[in-house]
Structure formats: structure tokens, C-alpha cells
Nucleic acid binder design. Structure first.
Lengths: 151, 151
DNA sequence: CTTGAAAAGAACTGCCT
DNA sequence: AGGCAGTTCTTTTCAAG
């Protein structure tokens, strides 16, 4: 585990919101010079604390108006069936995240679709035919807020 | 809804994986010049298709080894209680995402903690005391895979 | 840590096909 | 739409305090 001071935390918080900011602009906010800020960001990246920079795409602008969370219970849960399930689910383009979890379900999937009719197609033809699928529970996303987290 | 061609889709797919790539490097991959690639990325950003660029932080490197998904049912669901709940939950730093959903639960929360003992503290002192909370279900994250989605 | 500077590269602009 | 050429800005590295 890596030790961070308050300035590192401020930089991570600022960059979590908008990763396009330059080292110079960030430095002005936290009271540091451009090279000092740049070195801190480089250290955090080399450390692995910053794992990468990803695009944030607007689902709706892309025509995918529906996002649904599925809780999936497997009928048979050997090591082989977990791998079979994961391989098969990774081939469905509508699946955005695959979370292997412990609790009431075995997997949580985030699935996007153009509309409810499109979602029904994905559910019936793609999800329900996955190897080993038992119970499936669905929650339709109404709205979502992402927060900085406890950096 | 915005119309995209195959080149736009290829650019979005590449940038979703790693948003640090330069317009020049991306252009070489898709067979376009640097300015043409840059203008496409700018158009996608002005369009709102690209909503922003965010840091991808390594939870574990930051000392948060535990992530738990909570399904929350509210006991009372008037308009006021939804707002009360959302305001209160937004004040908990350990909550990374707040998803208002339709189905078996009313909200899905992604909560991170340093370890299971820390998670118990958050659950008992922060989550269970939220206004209007009824049933709470938990799923502990074992592993997670993010996929490009149906761009 | 700072300032200042320099080189490389990426972002951005204007013009032309 | 796209390419080319040029300008501006950021990144990246260095030296010196």
C-alpha cells in the first residue's frame, strides 16, 4: 500500500473529476509548480495508484437509452462452470461490466440496450442461454451518481 | 441521437481503453492524419458523445481492499424520502456510486472500505442509519471485468 | 521543494483539395 | 469530409538555488 499526503489526495480528487487538466493548472490549484505537480502525477502513475485514463461515454447520446443490472445465480458452480460462464458472457457486446460477487448472487452484470424491446431480445437470446444460468434478477437504471470516493 | 461511422467507433473503442493516446497515434491506427483524427475527437466531445476523461484509480493500491454492492429497499418511498435518502447517502465518502433503480431494490450502492472490519463500521454507523432505509442486501466484490460495450 | 530554460511532442488553426 | 503546413501549448527533462 502506498502512502499519500494531502497534496496527492487533492491531485487525485481533481483528476478523478476531469483527467484533461494540465499539470500547470493543477499545480496552481494546489499551490505547487508545474514540474513538482508533474513529478507527483508521474510517481502516482508509476506506483500503480493511477491505473489509467478512460473515456466517459454518454450512453444516451450513443443511442443506448436503457441500462439494466442483472443479478445472476448459477445452477452449477464448479470451477469449470465459472470459467465457462465468464467466457460466454464476455462475448456479449451489450454487457459492460461483469462482477463476480459473493452473496445472494454469483454474478452482477451491467447490460445496456437501445430500448426495452432491444433489452428483451438480449435477455432472452443472450443472457438466458448462458451456460449454467439459474435465477436472474433485474433492476432497471433510472439515474446514477458517481462520487469521488474516500481518496 | 448522433450518427457515427466506423472510424468514429474505432476511435471511441481505442480511447475507451486508454484515453492518453495522442491524435497522431490514433490516426495512424485508423488510417487518418493527425488533424482529421483530432477534429473527429473534438466533434465527438462537442456532441456530448465523449462526456469526459476520468482517472482510473487502483482501489487496492489506495488501501481499500473491500468493495461491496448494497441493494437498498426504502421503507417509505415518497418524493421527499427519495431526496432525503440521496442527500444523506451523498455525504458518505465510502459510497462510490449511487444508482436509483427500478425492481427488487430502490437503490444500489457501491461501497468501498479498507477491510471487512472497516466495512462493518460503515454499514452499521452510516448505511443502516440512513433516512428511510428498509431491507439491505450485500454482495462482496471478488473480481470485476469492464468491457468496451456495444459502441 | 523552487525557478528558468530548452527540446520534443501534442494540440490547435488556416488554407487548400 | 480529408491533407499539409505552421503556430501555440503542454509535456518532459535538465541545471542551478
Amino acid at each position: 500500500m502506498i502512502e499519500l499526503d494531502d497534496i496527492d489526495r487533492a491531485l487525485l480528487r481533481a483528476l478523478s473529476q476531469d483527467a484533461t487538466q494540465s499539470a500547470g493548472a493543477l499545480g496552481r490549484e494546489v499551490g505547487l509548480s508545474q514540474p513538482a505537480t508533474w513529478r507527483r502525477i508521474k510517481r502516482l502513475t508509476d506506483n500503480g495508484v493511477i491505473a489509467g485514463r478512460r473515456l466517459d461515454l454518454d450512453r444516451e447520446a450513443l443511442g443506448f437509452g436503457v441500462a439494466v443490472f442483472l443479478g445472476v445465480k448459477l445452477a452449477t458452480k464448479g470451477r469449470v462452470s465459472l470459467e465457462d460462464f465468464e467466457r460466454a458472457v464476455s462475448a456479449i457486446p451489450e454487457v459492460q461490466t461483469v462482477e463476480h460477487v459473493l452473496g445472494m448472487y454469483d454474478y452482477r452484470l451491467r447490460v445496456v440496450a437501445r430500448d426495452i424491446a432491444d433489452f428483451e431480445r438480449v435477455l432472452r437470446r443472450r443472457i438466458m442461454t448462458l451456460p449454467g444460468v439459474g435465477d436472474v434478477e433485474a433492476n432497471v437504471l433510472l439515474s446514477e451518481e458517481r462520487r469521488p470516493g474516500p481518496i
